[in-house]
């Protein structure tokens, strides 16, 4: 199973700022290993962030996103003590969901 994400969510004025670090190889499929064999592509394809049952961010990612990606964004609303849930799914179907409390 994939390693956990590191999530920080904090209130800035009337919106919530979310910062996420994800643990992922993000292999492009363009690289070759020492033997010259192509390393198969392996990257996060979709990222979904929900708050209070509503999707506040949905993203489709490709192989151009870096290894161990960092994502930062704001959404309007949110309240201290409430939870933000983040899910990613990669092209192998592996997925990981983590949540964080807004501070």
């Amino acid at each position: 199973m994939a390693d956990p994400m590191k999530i920080r969510a904090s209130m800035v004025g009337d919106s919530t700022e979310v910062k996420v670090l994800m643990n992922h190889e993000m292999e492009t499929g363009q690289r070759k290993d020492a033997q010259g064999a192509v390393i198969p592509a392996w990257f996060i394809q979709s990222v979904t962030v929900t708050y209070g049952g509503k999707t506040v961010l949905a993203a489709q990612w490709g192989p151009a996103v870096s290894k161990n990606p960092f994502l930062s964004f704001k959404f309007k609303g949110g309240a201290k003590g409430e939870k933000v849930t983040i899910t990613w799914i990669d092209n192998k179907g592996d997925k990981r969901t983590d949540e964080a409390t807004i501070t």
Binding site: K6, K19, L21, N23, N68, F70, L71
Partner: peptide, 14 residues
Amino acid sequence: ALQDGNPAELWEAR
């Protein structure tokens, strides 16, 4: 710019 999301935190957690 990178300082904010330093992936070293993932190593720290592990």
